[in-house]
Amino acid sequence: MTTIHVLADSGQDLVKSHDSFPAEEDSEPPADELENHLRTLEVDEATIDYDRLDEAIEASMTVFDLGRRRQRTAMDSNLAPIVHQCIDVPPRVAAVPGMWHYLTLLRYPDFITSRWSQDDDLQEKFLGTQKDLYSNHLARLWWGAHLTYDEEEDHYLATHRLFNKQRLVNYVLDSSFRRYRPAAIAFAEELWDESGKNITSIAKRFNNSLSTTQLESRSKDQIRDQLGKIRNYVENTN
């Protein structure tokens, strides 16, 4: 039995209506106030290894140069599997937005701020939007890893590849098929070394093709095969 901390919606509202955080530079979440809006969930078969996670996040912030885009991307690719391993919770729990709000706002605010300080939408990285859980930074790392983790072979190769390309991870996690694991893995495996421009064209054609085909009936290999064909077509017509 593990206690999972969850920030209630009222806590989320508090952040949304806050004057200075995260809009102002060097501002911090109102931790004391937020503590009053915490709830807990008791979950069987869940463990959160904070020691290892703390260490990994701290090390990442030292090793990677967060002023450079390429380095930030590399950090995501490096951290996603660790986040997934350290936060060992069933998907049902990982789908609770408040759990991620607690982690980003009260556990790792400095990390989130450093990672996304160049971005306009810092609040979204802390909270996630109303419609989209995946924009919370930690949830994004966790779900991206969860979707691409190879359960049979027990490795995260596809996760590394997915996060290694910002355009790719954005497309996969923001698309309407994102919850279909074979598609997520196929994208990572097939398009990880493709240019951003081509990824956009291929993804658009793939989306178009889904107006006439049922994705859920296709295996990972079939989807890879299809992506390969689209790639050929896109490269030949360019």
Binding site: S211, T212, T213, K229
Partner: peptide, 17 residues
């Protein structure tokens, strides 16, 4: 145009709704 067969046209997103 320039696509091998109809099946492929579906797959590469040329024939859509």
């Amino acid at each position: 145009d320039g696509i091998g067969d109809v099946r492929e046209a579906f797959e590469i997103g040329a024939i859509t709704e």
